[in-house]
């Protein structure tokens, strides 16, 4: 029973962070700041969904001892690892593509990349 309370707690945390990710799309001014909210709040939220699944599987595993819950745990952990890698890479790819196509960050107090590009520095 204690496990299922933890599952519900983890799910509530994940719902909170995932909805903040959606809210940030409206609150923030440009693509870079939106990426912060949209990709990373959702990463954190989705990690908590995975944690909830693992806790649920552990609870059922202790209850019944069936092997299929081990499979559930392992697949969730694999999905979590893949999510961590692809989410970071995707966010980075979007940010880099927007900067290279000339989109300046809105309200920026400093833009070192633009400075070094116009000096002919960082060009790859």
């Amino acid at each position: 029973m204690a496990f299922f309370i933890l599952v519900i707690a983890a799910l509530l945390v994940s719902v909170f962070f995932n909805s903040l990710g959606a809210v940030s799309l409206y609150r923030f001014p440009d693509v870079y700041t939106r990426l912060h909210g949209a990709t990373k709040c959702t990463t954190f939220g989705t990690i908590f969904i995975a944690v909830a699944v693992v806790l649920y599987a552990v609870g059922r595993l202790l209850e019944s001892g069936e092997n299929r819950f081990w499979v559930l745990i392992i697949h969730t952990l694999v999905a979590m690892m893949v999510l961590l890698v692809t989410n970071a890479t995707g966010a980075h790819a979007i940010a880099r593509a927007s900067h290279r196509s000339g989109l300046a960050p809105a309200k920026a107090v400093v833009d070192r990349l633009e400075e070094s590009c116009s000096r002919g520095g960082a060009s790859q």
Partner: peptide, 14 residues
């Protein structure tokens, strides 16, 4: 770079 991007508030651009 991946660690920086995954911790919110910082995002590796290039």
């Amino acid at each position: 770079a991946d660690s920086i991007t995954l911790t919110p508030g910082t995002l590796t651009v290039d």
